[in-house]
């Protein structure tokens, strides 16, 4: 099983699902030089958002701790601890702030860029 991320160019293979630790994220370098953070949940869900923490500018969101409130998964930035809803990218602690999200899927075979 591979984990794949949808970018402008198509589906990008990130890593093997078994490379990920449930409850943690990994950082992905994208073709345009920007970065995404991909997370795996305990029940097998995957989500991806921008890796850049909008509060500090540092590319660290993939290193935050994952949790859920009312069933909705979030990541807490490891720097100043603001939480981001993984499905929508909305910051839960400051309404006006959000980060972009990326569609992500797990696929049986490793698919090259479509």
């Amino acid at each position: 099983m591979t984990v794949e991320l949808q970018v402008d160019e198509g589906w990008l293979t990130v890593c093997e699902l078994s490379d990920m630790i449930p409850g943690r994220g990994v950082a992905v370098l994208l073709p345009d030089g920007s970065q995404a953070a991909v997370f795996l949940g305990r029940s097998g869900w995957t989500y991806a958002i921008d890796n850049r923490d909008p509060f500090t500018g540092a590319a660290v969101l993939s290193r935050g701790l994952v949790g859920c409130v009312e069933g909705k998964p979030f990541v807490a930035s490891p720097l100043l601890k603001q939480r981001f809803d993984l499905a929508t990218g909305r910051c839960l602690d400051e309404e006006e702030v959000s980060v972009r999200t990326y569609p992500v899927r797990t696929a049986v075979t490793s698919a090259a860029v479509a």
């Binding site: 029940s43 994952v66 949790g67 409130v69 069933g71 807490a76 939480r83």
Partner: peptide
């Protein structure tokens, strides 16, 4: 942690992903 959460967590939190406060 999962055993603890599922057995002793709040009803709504059982089976879930926990949070950044209780995990560490």
């Amino acid at each position: 942690y999962q055993q603890l959460l599922d057995g002793h967590g709040r009803e709504a939190a059982r089976g879930g992903d926990g949070c950044e406060v209780c995990k560490p």
